[in-house]
Amino acid sequence: MTATNVTFKVFRFDPEKDTEGRYQDYTLAVAPGETILNCVNRIKWEQDQTLAHRFSCGSAICGSCAMKINGHATLVCKTQAMDKVKDGVIRIDPIGNLKPLRDLVVDLTPFWKSFEKVEPWLAPDAHSAPEKERLQTPEQFAKIDNSTTCIMCAACFSDCNVLEVDKRYYGPATLAKAHRFIFDSRDARTEARLRKVTEETGVWDCTHCGECSTRCPTETKPLARINEIRQAAMKAGMHDTSGARHVLGFRETVGKRGLLDENYVPIRSVGFFNLAGLLSLAPVGLRMLARGKNPPFIPHSIEKAGEVRAIFAKREELNK
């Protein structure tokens, strides 16, 4: 069990002195199995007391110690240092999509504020209050088992590709929190909640990049929860969004001929009567036409497409 010398390249930022961040190198002898949190603590305690970072439980429960390791957010208390060494170096940055206040400490206000949008508290039917408590069967709880495990560490928020370009987006943790109440058998506001998160900047703005589920240290896995919300919205007939119409475009073309009709789906998504939306498709359509890159006007059909039609015809039954 020999220790290995590792260079920690740590992001430093002092709002009183610095206009932008810089990196400072620290060298530590890292023991096998040692967590990065332990290393950061040792840097602070043994080498440089000015380093600021957040942590508390050290057991992946409190969600305080998310940092970017080599560019990707993770809870440093459940990450072993030796697993992350690249050419003798580990780079540590504050989590992303949030403003650094000092060193590895960020301003979490936008993250906390985003939860307000989904009213994260149970809203049962007040008129049907039971004498004691509102019970759930194990089957009912199973639906929210994953989304209740969120520890709000903001690792998903940090690496979300949509939040990088649009701060208005609900964000993965908030949508997972919405899921936790939408699928709660005791909640009476299911439809209103679904309607709210399917509006602009909600579930349909998620780009499937998978960063949230990759960085999530729990079983919350926001991308899978977002997908479940989308399925619930489709099932509930909430089809008046471009996201839902996009799904219908797939249903109507893949479900008929087995392949996507790339001419039809964009038009279906923006809406048949949305003149501005349809016009916005024109430039790219003309560019592609000029290069012969346009999808064929008579859409392809796969062989044995009848089998695919049979699979889609069974959808209603499967959805139950």
Partner: peptide, 17 residues
């Protein structure tokens, strides 16, 4: 004779389907 993979979108209609 193979159909579209669904591209994550048919999955939003029905994961099982």
């Amino acid at each position: 004779d193979a159909a579209c993979c669904g591209a994550g979108v048919v999955q939003e209609d029905s994961h099982t389907m």
